[in-house]
């Protein structure tokens, strides 16, 4: 199957997302990962146990980062996302392709 190539690099932004609320369900990390992959974003998601929130680094076109925020603000029925905070993030270099879940030790 021939599909479109990756979106132009110049349109890619990288942002750090923080999801707070009742977000302790471990399935939420899989859910966020699934959403990011569906949107073709690169990055990672992990639980920040100390802070009590989920954080994710995502890179892609702005419209798709918006879609990431929207989808994850709902998430599965088992979580309640009270707030989503986003801030631009200067990545150290090009992001590896794909989106994955990091364990706390990563």
């Amino acid at each position: 199957m021939i599909r479109d190539t990756q979106p132009l690099m110049m349109n890619r932004q990288t942002e750090l997302f923080r999801f707070s609320g009742d977000v302790s369900d471990p399935d939420f990390l899989d859910w966020i990962c699934h959403r990011a992959n569906r949107l073709g974003l690169n990055g990672w998601v992990r639980k920040n146990a100390a802070g009590g929130f989920i954080e994710a680094l995502a890179s892609g076109p702005e419209e798709l980062l918006d879609a990431m925020e929207l989808g994850c603000s709902l998430g599965p029925i088992t979580v309640w996302v009270e707030t989503v905070v986003r801030c631009p993030h200067d990545s150290d270099g090009p992001m590896p392709n794909g989106f994955k879940i990091l364990t706390q030790a990563d």
Binding site: R35, R38, E63, D66, A67, L70, G71, L74, P76, I77
Partner: peptide, 12 residues
């Protein structure tokens, strides 16, 4: 209420 099978964008 779980949008897993959908793709909401900013227009939504």
């Amino acid at each position: 209420l779980d949008p897993k099978m959908e793709i909401p964008t900013r227009a939504d």
